[in-house]
Design a protein around this nucleic acid. Sequence first.
DNA 1: CCTGAGGGC
Length: 739
Amino acid sequence: MAKIKHRALTSGGTSEKPAKRPRVAWMDESDDEAHSHKINGAEALKSLKFDAQSPRPTKKQKMAGAGPSGSKQAAMQEQRKQLPIALGRDAIIQEIKDNDVTVLVGETGSGKTTQIPQYILESGLARNGMIAVTQPRRVAATSLASRVALETQSQLGSLVGYSVRFSDVSSDKTKIKFVTDGMLVRELMGDPEMERYSVVIIDEAHERTLRTDVLLARLKGILKKRNAVPTEGKGKGKERAPKNPLKVVIMSATLDADKFSSFFGNAKILYVQGRQHPVAIYHTSTPQPDYVDAALRTVFQIHTDQPTGDILVFLPGQEDIESLDKSLQLYAKRLPQDAPGILTCPLYASLPASQQQQIFVPAPKGMRKVILATNIAETSVTIPGVRYVIDSGKCKEKRWVGRGVGGGFDTLLTRDITKSSAWQRTGRAGREAAGSCFRLYTEDAFSALPLSAEPEIRRCSLVASMLQLKCLGQDLEEMEFMESPDQEGIAQALMALYLLGALDDRKHLTDLGRRMAFFPLEPALSRAVLASVEFGCTSEVLAIVSVLSASSKLFVDTTDSRESAREAHTKFRHISGDHLTVLNVVRAYEEVLQAEGGADGRKASRAALKDWCVRNYVSHRCLTEALEIRAQLREYCERQAIDWRASCGDRVGEEQAVLRSLVRGLVQNTAFLQPDGRYKQVIGHSIVKIHPGSSLCDKKVPAIIYDELVYTTQIYARGVSAIPRNYIAEVPLLKHKGS
DNA sequence: CCTGAGGGC
């Protein structure tokens, strides 16, 4: 039998009698013989000690600890009591009528996102324009639109519609439009004052995505302009109203309503009660450094002691999920035959959709489902049937670590969650009935957690947002945001845009920059596309750029099948490195697509394509997404009068045009070979190695370009191609380098 | 000699 890597397993189970601390009921019954479903075998799982903290604090208690405005609380709470959403309807509408900006705090299950837009529509507030409702996620935008269309008994795309990338289901009849925040930012390009909208509702504002923060900052400026009372006629007794006023509603689910309110000049805050069942909360008595082991033991404690109901375990990443999955299955085998079994269900974004669907399939009778999930289950996916939540208290966070201009790289590290995240996870146990949440950390540890996450504007690259704002005539560094970006982030973005030729040396937007912003791509990739026009290889560069901007990885490379995957990938390999290797895969895939996509019907063709992908260890998901992106990019090319068919051909040497185009975009991602075999950045000071997964690993070439740097044991360059040194000197701003 | 939080245009 495979050995379990967790060591905190002792024989004798719960023989150790915990005494002093308050115990939860099921712990008090921890008499070994009394367990109905004992785990067989020499090794039994030692129980974990939890302190009860019940019931869940009310919003009032939480708010009291959250902000300085204790005195306002009573009034707000009083107001909240009168606002179960339907009853509060008239009051909410009145407030929106009376104020430019309203902050609405709605608990989960309050129905605020589906109801408020309808109330506004019925009130006539949106007589002159549309109501926009922004969402951070595509699925939310599309599913909410369907729901509201249903409730208004209208066809989706008429009165109620949505607009997300690749899919615009709206018409000139549309009055309520659900959009992703990124889509509304993009719409600003053609409608800088949002004049098509009478009301803009920013939902899930507390998530503080970079795009939401950009929208909030812009809305402040737009309000000033659109809602200003015209000054002519002043003093003549004739009151004038703004021509096309805008109403803004900020919807937030957590504790930072005060922040939004003060950002918008102490806007009114309204509270809407939710329909959430009570959740009992337990913290561990002692810290649990090995949270995977602690989760393992807690699952079986719940399984043996608690009534039916599925368990949702929050873990930081795939590795922990797979490890816990294995352990659970091993122990589940040892449950007595007549005892209920356990069905494990991993859930993370890169899991194939078919496996993700498993969470919606009810467990067979007599089985308990245990879902092992990342943050995806915190906001993006709601899982039915969950009564128990186990919270590891950990998550992964991507953070850009700057080391001077041009020398930055991304890290992806496990860290503690925030209080607001902990509450969100807890709430997942009370969606359908009363539930329990087991936190694998002490109450003291919980108290020490930060209230909410650092907003993206403080930890993500600002390059794309800065370029978009420049196109609106706005300077990111001078705008008023909820939280201002740090100087380092601004300097990095300015330098990046300058090196791409999007800004001139006076920080003014260039024609090139305007054309770059037009493409729905990272600025570096937009630059490569525009350069490809010059070098006559747009067809090739579009194919590569589409794969690079797809959300999943092209090459499947799991630990168990590494050898065969490597072998399958060799036939795609291009001598210059990874970029042209990607192109070879796309070309090969297209050949299969043409051969199979006959009159036989799409299903057979799709199956053949999938089969081809499996055999070649490439991701079907990545390729379908890439082709969709490429189709969109081709449309954008046509609108810019760019011939996307232009090709450099596939003769040997012709591919140099492709590499020259890529260098224009990846200027900052260039490095020269050093005598020791490592590479030194052309811009910036980092010494990097080629990632072992790259086709150029261990090769010594004079100069390289790469897609990204990842820091693990050292700084690795991923997605690498070899280039002649003089290609770097071709970049106008780098003339002195590389020659 | 490695490695994958979650999103968006």
